[in-house]
Amino acid sequence: MSKLQLSVAVGNYDRCRPLFDGDVRIDGVDPVFMQLSPEEIFFRAFRNAEFDICELSLSSSVVKTANGTLPYVGVPVFLSRMFRHSAFYVRKDRIKRPGDLRGKKVGLPEYQLTAMVWIRAFLEQDYGVAPEEITWVRGGISDADRPEKIALDLPPSIRLIDAPPGKTISALLAEGEIDGYIAPRAPDIRGGASENIGWLFDDPMAEAIAYYRRREIFPIMHILGVRRTIAEAHPWLPGAVFKAFAEAKNLCLERLLETSACKITMPFADERLHHDMALMGRDFWTYGIDGNRHVLDDFLAQHHRQGLSSRRVTIEELFHPATFEQFTI
């Protein structure tokens, strides 16, 4: 039987490197890998479903699942996980603490981005600032014409406005027209205009560690998707994809733990790795539903709370049933 030739679009992550190099293979698949930025993958996947297997925004996938329009079925491979306490920038000359954001304007590239959901969640849960207390200003980071990828139907209590024509949220922050900025990328500001701009939290790592100790949540940003029509024709495929990506991630961690030479271009990489394991456990970058159900449940509840999903989506309808359990010996 010939193998399925399928396109696979994911980011250039160390946890995928064994797949790119051929050290790990997807059973029954002859993959054509495309290493692309998340922005390009998501735009092409959610607009035109261009890829057979691809990285997907968790938030966009939930919006589409709630509406019954997601062309992919989820696989619980969490290619991107990130604490987002360092993704919040503010005018330091007027915002000193999270509570100062009440009644203020905060820019974001898209209201529905996964990072935005997590940030709004910890603002409300940990600092008492509700999404309804902020005016959200949507605009591009570097391109004023950046669109929202998918249509949203937000409740009237959420104040979301567009940036003025020709203005990016980076420029609005630099000019003081908005008070804060949240995005997966830093604001595009050069020169002296950044003088009064900095992180909301002076030590975002300390804030993130305290958040993890309170909630034991390592936020999930991206999942993996298999085109629904292909999964229906080949029901073995989502499980095979999960198996291969999990093996690749495990091999990546094994290689990081081998300390004869530094694998990444950072000093103190070994010390950082052991610190993270002491905080979060040896398999801190967990794939699968087991070990992540509480993270996913929290996100799905917050997603609906923030008006992004028309109903409370369940884990079972987001991910393919073949990926919930794996064999053991």
Score class of each variant (00 low, 15 high):
P98D: 07
C262P: 08
F42W: 15
E254A: 11
L123A: 04
Y111Q: 02
D283S: 13
D100F: 07
M221L: 13
F201I: 08
D298C: 09
D23F: 06
D276Y: 14
S86V: 01
F43Q: 14
R81A: 06
E50A: 15
A208K: 03
A151E: 12
W285M: 15
P147W: 03
K149W: 13
L79M: 11
I209W: 06
G128R: 06
D100E: 08
K149P: 00
R227Q: 13
N196F: 13
D203R: 07
N48E: 15
K249M: 08
G99N: 07
Q5M: 14
H274E: 11
D93G: 03
A269N: 11
Q125H: 03
T69A: 06
F268W: 12
H320W: 03
P184Q: 07
A210T: 11
D298H: 12
E110M: 13
Y13G: 02
L4W: 15
I134M: 12
P18A: 15
D21I: 05
N196M: 10
A231W: 10
V29K: 09
G225A: 11
Q35V: 07
D290Y: 11
P155R: 07
A322H: 03
S7N: 10
G22M: 13
R185P: 00
E258D: 13
S86H: 11
F245M: 13
D27Y: 06
I189F: 09
R228C: 05
I41S: 02
E247H: 03
G198N: 08
V63C: 15
F33I: 09
A183I: 01
T286D: 07
S59I: 09
A261L: 09
S157C: 00
I141Q: 15
P147C: 02
E40G: 02
T65C: 14
L152C: 03
V32T: 05
I150W: 06
I150D: 11
I169Q: 08
L172C: 06
I220W: 07
T328Y: 09
E258G: 01
D126M: 08
A246F: 00
L237Y: 09
V75T: 01
A248M: 00
E175S: 12
D143Y: 09
G307P: 09
A248Y: 00
F268S: 12
K263M: 06
R84N: 08
E316I: 03
M280Y: 02
S170Q: 11
F33Q: 10
V137N: 10
I289W: 14
I158T: 05
G99S: 13
F46S: 08
H234C: 04
I95A: 10
H294T: 14
I329C: 07
H320I: 04
R81I: 02
V313R: 11
V226D: 05
K3N: 13
E177P: 01
D276P: 00
A9K: 08
R44I: 10
F20Q: 13
C262Y: 05
W199A: 11
G307D: 12
F242Y: 15
G140M: 05
W118F: 01
K104F: 01
G198W: 08
G103V: 01
A87T: 04
A186W: 01
D188Q: 11
I182P: 00
T114E: 08
E232C: 04
R94Y: 00
V226I: 14
G192C: 05
K105W: 04
E258Q: 12
R305T: 06
G22Q: 14
P131I: 04
A269R: 12
L79R: 00
G107K: 04
